[in-house]
């Protein structure tokens, strides 16, 4: 949003760059080599729930996403929160991260094609280590950047493990564009658990 847009009060939401989710494949390999955190094969997309009901344009786009995703692999799962956000969770084989990246990309592509690209917030992929350390690699659609989010311990909202996040950023820097502004590496406590396989 430029200065002129602001001064004129124009409704000019950001224009999303194309997502870079396919870079996840190399990023995950680098992360595992450096820190031992291995992908679980679970991933999710967080988007806003645009109003309009099941028969509005957004409802149609969501049905199209569901149709494209369920033709292969296990069914997806949706978690909605009362503030108007939803997480679309999916699981693919842990060794086939390219399939997960492709399916996450499909969600964004369908919603963008329908005109709702501005309502995509995050995509996230889960990682886990033998000692129980969890990590989510989060993609910010609006900025085209990635950042690691490593919760400490098992409890909800128990704080972030800065050491693990810092090491992960170092390992990923060569493969992925890392979010440069620390103030925008937001915690995603409400994400569904991507670090444990359910199927």
């Amino acid at each position: 949003m430029g200065l002129l847009d602001g001064v004129l009060g124009r409704p000019a939401p950001r224009r999303s760059p194309a997502d870079r989710l396919f870079a996840l494949v190399e990023g995950a390999a680098a992360l595992e080599a450096a820190t031992g955190l291995a992908p679980t094969g679970a991933g999710a997309v967080c988007h806003r729930l645009v109003e309009g009901g099941a028969f509005g344009a957004f409802g149609r786009a969501r049905r199209e996403v569901a149709r494209l995703l369920t033709h292969d692999g296990p069914a997806t799962e949706t978690v909605e929160d009362p503030h108007g956000h939803a997480w679309l969770r999916m699981e693919r084989p842990p060794d086939g991260l390219d399939r997960l990246a492709a399916d996450l990309h499909t969600v964004g592509a369908v919603l963008t094609e329908a005109g709702f690209g501005a309502y995509l917030l995050f995509a996230a992929v889960g990682f886990r280590r033998g000692d129980g350390q969890r990590l989510l690699l989060v993609h910010l659609y609006g900025r085209g950047t990635f950042y690691p989010f490593a919760p400490r311990g098992d409890g909800a909202r128990s704080g972030r493990n800065n050491t693990v996040e810092e090491r992960a950023r170092g390992a990923l820097a060569a493969e992925l564009p890392i979010e440069p502004d620390p103030g925008r590496r937001f915690a995603v406590w409400d994400a569904p658990d991507l670090t444990v396989r359910r199927v």
Binding site: M1, P13, R14, R48, H83, H85, A118, Y119, L121, F122, L140, G142, R143, D181, G183, R184, F186, A187, W189, D190
Partner: peptide, 13 residues
């Protein structure tokens, strides 16, 4: 959490 999500949508600090 609400404000953070809005920051993501509006690309604001």
């Amino acid at each position: 959490a609400i404000v953070e999500r809005l920051c993501v949508s509006a690309d604001l600090p």
